[in-house]
Amino acid sequence: MEGPRACPTPVKPAVVRVRDYRRETHDTFTLVLDPPATGGAAFRPGQFNMLYVFGVGEAPISLSGDPGEGGGWVHTIRAVGAVTRALARLRPGDVLGLRGPYGSSWPLENARGRDVVLVSGGIGLAPLRPVLYHLRRHRAEYGKIALLYGARSPADALYLDELRAWRAAGELQVLLTVDRGDPSWTESLGLVTALFDRADFAPDRAVGLICGPEIMMRFTQREFAKRGVADERLYVSLERNMHCAVGFCGHCQLGPSFVCMDGPVFRYDRIRTFFEIREA
């Protein structure tokens, strides 16, 4: 995991324009934004921005585009609250406020030369997608790569065309599963952890990157542990209530950690104690 980086705007958002809007599923969409004039477009996979809709409010949204492309900033967002529903109404040319990027990132340096197993559930694939772009771009530097992705239903699964194209290209193993199938679904049915037996990786040289609902992450950690992947080689991305993103507001604390600053990506053994305490 790599630490946070200085951000010039701890309080005031920059105003940016929407370059592209794409509907992903019935409740999820992707916005491509012009990066702010100052600060450039660079971000590290796993980081997030605070997006502000005029007069409505602000929400933390992970970056889900290609970190090496240098184009617009890509955010895949689920419309579930007042702010995200307002974000869903934005179209190309509209403006919004943006602060960031904030937070820690996935351990792409430490993972070099190792097998990389990405396990995600639901919207949890969005913060991991930049990792997939990075791994593909630097394919030779990594060992085996497996993506295990679980969604509620085929209609809820994100980026399916892209994932299948990557699978067809043979660059990585893509295992997909849903809780509820439909007649068109020819991939797996069942919990994402049921895919572990089919994932091709060497436990002694694997790094696990996990993002999804907390229960799913707990079950996933147990699957890794069963196979001998130590907690020191597991990384999780956590969600907490965030207002400021810079450690001032206190909302996102988990034990000694501020999820906004010290996370959202944590090495599992470093957060385990508090992650496992109920209502911590």
């Binding site: 502000y52 409010g57 602000e58 001032f248 909302h251």
Partner: peptide
């Protein structure tokens, strides 16, 4: 104690908005 929360508010014209920070509590 330093916890706070922010509220984003607009005036009636919807032309002006502001972010107001208030003390909050765990």
């Amino acid at each position: 104690c330093f916890c706070s929360s922010v509220a984003d508010v607009t005036d009636l014209s919807l032309e002006n908005a502001q972010r107001v920070r208030k003390w909050d509590s765990c």
